[in-house]
Amino acid sequence: MILSEDKTMSEHNHHEHHVSSVGQLWAIGIALTLLTILTVGLSHVEIPAPFDVVVALTVAFVKAFLVCAFFMNLYWDTKFNSMLLIGAFAFFILMVAVTLLDTLYRNDVVPSF
């Protein structure tokens, strides 16, 4: 009887903690590896100027999404933690965008000395 009580206890306490299956984790790992091969392969393909970076970053974002969602368990976690991640990224974009507002629009790129 005590044993079964313990079992319900632990089930209750961790009812929200997601346990990933082995297959799931391996699938993510393999997908990440394949995407790495893909991005290296794509780097050898001639893609016109801005789009090579776009393609490389798209693959990187997909990989990062897989890691965050399934390795870091954000998919099953409280939405607030995902919000923190997205918020941090938004502020990073903000920093870059506003800095570029200066650096891209200067008359004289770097003052010559």
């Binding site: 790495t36 991005t39 290296v40 780097s43 050898h44 001639e46 893609i47 090579d52 490389a56 970053l57 693959v59 990187a60 990989k63 990062a64 890691v67 965050c68 390795f71 870091m72």
Partner: peptide, 22 residues
């Protein structure tokens, strides 16, 4: 684990941005 995944994610961006410039 979370810390380690983060280190992984940062590398995921460093790799194409530094090594894969054609």
């Amino acid at each position: 684990g979370l810390y380690w995944h983060l280190v992984d994610v940062i590398w995921i961006f460093l790799f194409p941005l530094l090594y894969l410039i054609e």
